[in-house]
């Protein structure tokens, strides 16, 4: 079982991200379950969504409390909400930020993760450039594929095509591909290897 928890704010497509990840898992022939947190989903409020991936039927319906990967769609949540709660010792953390990890004040978490398991990417900027809207969810899924290697980029692309109208889907896919390339190429690691790290175990991929 691979469990992903996504944190963001209402309006950032947090729930859609988990849904797309589950569709990508299904496309790969896995069992997948995505569901929103049962919290307020008003614009701007902290929102959480969950996705489980497994090679057999998923029966549990409890929220994910010990995630294997975290996607943080809004860096302002880092010090507002206990986003790192329960993170697996060798878990992955992907943060939407135009600033490097060192500037985010989470050095303690970064230090205890294996090299290459934490990355920041300016997903909002990428989304604005490709899609024309500050919705970072699909972009982050591209980066997620590169960082963790648990999912093929083409599966995420297929999921994006299921979720969005063709024109919008292609723009999101272009952004997701760029994010994938930035993470995969950022540290010279092969696509999906996800293990190579920067100098301090932190990988940077800042969009221009």
């Amino acid at each position: 079982m691979f469990e992903v928890r996504i944190h963001g704010r209402g309006g950032q497509g947090v729930v859609t991200a988990a849904e797309m990840l589950s569709v990508a898992g299904f496309i790969e022939g896995r069992w997948a379950q995505a569901f929103p947190s049962f919290g307020s989903e008003r614009m701007g409020a902290p929102v959480v969504s969950f996705c489980r991936l497994h090679d057999s039927e998923i029966r549990a319906r409890e929220p994910i409390t010990a995630p294997d990967a975290l996607i943080i769609q809004d860096p302002t949540l880092l010090h507002q909400v206990r986003v790192f709660d329960g993170l697996a010792p060798a878990g992955y953390v992907l943060i939407n930020s135009s600033r490097p990890i060192e500037a985010l004040g989470i050095g303690e978490v970064a230090a205890r993760l294996p090299k290459g398991h934490m990355a920041a990417i300016a997903a909002t900027e990428l989304a604005v450039r490709h899609v024309g809207r500050p919705v970072p969810n699909a972009v982050l899924l591209g980066a997620f594929c590169a960082m963790t290697g648990v999912m093929k980029l083409e599966s995420v692309e297929a999921a994006i095509r299921q979720k969005f109208r063709p024109a919008l889907a292609e723009k999101n896919i272009a952004a997701a591909r760029e994010a994938f390339g930035m993470i995969a190429g950022g540290a010279g690691a092969g696509a999906g290897a996800g293990m190579a790290g920067g100098e301090d175990g932190v990988r940077h991929a800042e969009a221009v």
């Binding site: 049962f38 902290p46 929220p63």
Partner: peptide, 14 residues
Amino acid sequence: VGVGAGANGKGGAR
């Protein structure tokens, strides 16, 4: 404990 923790119950805000 954050308001709207909802599903997380008394586990605290996420």
